[in-house]
Amino acid sequence: MCLAFSLFMPLLSLFLFSRDDRSAHEVSVDRSTMAEHILEDEEEGLEVTDEQKIGLATWFLLKSPPGEIQQVAKSIRGVLMDERLFDMAAKEAFPKYNMEQMIAIDLADHSGQVLLTKYGAIDVSQHLDPRTAQVAVIDHVKQVCTDVRPAADDELPSAFVEEHRASIDNELVKYVEEAFPKGNCAVYCTCGKDVESGGDEFELKAVISATKFSAQNFYSGSWRSVWKIQVNQELQTVEINGKINVIAHYFEEGNVQLETSSECSNSTLLQSPADTGVAVVNVIQYLESDYLGVLEESYSKVSDNSFKELRRKLPVTRTRFSWNNALQLSLSREITKELSLTR
């Protein structure tokens, strides 16, 4: 972007001349002549390569707030005015966005939903749903599932690992149903899927994803948590490390965004698969509730603390500013200050 910016700097000064339009204000500016003026200048535009255009469009798509990528795609298409370039940008951005945002997609046979995550991705378009042992074929740009097939044996963990995975998944589903009105979750085996009882370590990832979007109420939001669960059979321990990301966007006559994240960890003892599942999800539930408490506290401090660092509600004098005699007041204050200094 640095390069891009330096490229556009001379252009900026060129066009800034006409920025005085602002003082005359939008209403008084004749839109049609403005449009003509713009069109006349069309030939003078700076040349940007197709490669750069795709890069810029991809940037916008990846920065889409939760659930808003289709709307952003529509707008970037209107800006690009080139279907070929748009398709290339979309092909690059959508799979990345879908997996980063961990979006849920209805299975083609309507039997449920599959979460798109990098942990369940067999390749870009094939995504494993560990709960049903199915693989969903995904059209990323359309955000739909086009086909479902049963997972092959080598795509699934050993029976021993699966027992632990399924038990955690079971407990996680119960917790997500209670805490997330529109949540989805999955548990993947990300390391040591062929490990047997009494063998090496293995690693599971439990993910929770919840998205809300309402175009007519101008808001969207997402909660994503990824929990790395490391099972050490030798030490009989389970290490749990989590990262939670929360984004909220409110854009009615404005644009306001919340971005918050937390990293937390805890551990528990390895027990029977069923007991381990309960223990792990208890840890997750506890840490996530704790984080929500921190968020609540941060919000409660916004008004009186955080905001005050930028602008106070009332002046230091605790009365509205006296525009009439501000100068005299400040003058007399300075005199008293000087007097007190000399004293």
């Binding site: 009105p181 939001g221 929360v246 909220a248 966007h249 306001v256 919340l258 408490g293």
Partner: peptide
């Protein structure tokens, strides 16, 4: 409003 969104995503 952003707070409201967060607390409807994940209920306390």
């Amino acid at each position: 409003k952003t707070k409201e969104v967060v607390f409807t995503l994940r209920e306390p």
